[in-house]
Design a binder for these strands. Sequence first.
DNA 1: TCCAATACGGATATCGTTTATCCTTATTGG
DNA 2: CCAATAAGGATAAACGATATCCGTATTGGA
Lengths: 162, 162
Amino acid sequence: MILKSQVEWALHCCAILAGLPDGRYLSTKALAEFHGLPKEYLSKALQSLSQARLVDSTLGPSGGYRLSRPPAEITFLDVVEAVEGKERSFVCNNIRANNPCRPEGYCDAGPCAIARIMWDADEAWRASLRAVTLAMLVQSLEKDVPPALWRESFEWVMKRVG
Amino acid sequence: MILKSQVEWALHCCAILAGLPDGRYLSTKALAEFHGLPKEYLSKALQSLSQARLVDSTLGPSGGYRLSRPPAEITFLDVVEAVEGKERSFVCNNIRANNPCRPEGYCDAGPCAIARIMWDADEAWRASLRAVTLAMLVQSLEKDVPPALWRESFEWVMKRVG
DNA sequence: TCCAATACGGATATCGTTTATCCTTATTGG
DNA sequence: CCAATAAGGATAAACGATATCCGTATTGGA
């Protein structure tokens, strides 16, 4: 059970978009170059973000993507779910229904105990991701990345911004 | 990102094994019949449990599986990790290393902020699973399942127990 | 002692998902 | 009008999940 690499890509891209000046767009090409990723395939991840309304896009030269809301209002969960989907990681196939002792037409009152427990864990995972915003991510990154590299990266992006 | 169905199977099988009288074994065949599962493939899941030392097995007629510890000492996480592996669900490919602004031979101090946050969520998931034991599961099930069905299922199993 | 039932592990096949590329279309700034 | 872009469909390769089959070793019971 491994998350798609597109989740990682989308998060890194969102981190860049969160640092953009208000209203400016950055293209798939620039994002792919900056992260060393295949442009065509990264494009699919960005389209997922777009469909989830996390980013706006424009066409034409100097087109690209920007966040549709302030970074403080976009959570990790938003991004992860945009790419990975909202389905729970545990799927209950209700195999208890195959119990040979069951009377015909027996109907279960609710989800089985195993599913409830697994779904609780899933919700704990989601709650953890919901607690972190892109604004917090940028803060963390700024603390981690040496100031010189931070500045150069910003300038690299600004040269390509629409 | 969906957990293998073997996780579900293993948990249901553990629930049955947890209800067995001390020292008795139940075969793959019986477990497969009870849950309506393909015997050969279920066998792989049980082998995973065996390799993780969660269950003991014996060969020969009246052979099968039993829990290797009291149900209160086996957690959901034990079972999930036995089948699914202990690897984290988020894999960091360190794509920040592709940043074109990086000086040659630059070395990162630690894992990147995105990985840390994703791994925190993973740990929240694991902590949630670690908090629930098979003993607690059996308690839940006994509350959910009607007494008649509970009793009949127990007898069904006891007829096949080694 | 022999037989049948079992766990175990290797080999193989099938299927779906992820990853990736290519191409067409519509849009837009210069 | 042109070039750059997002969007999305079609396709294929690679991989993991699912599933089956078979051979081996072990063991309880006849």
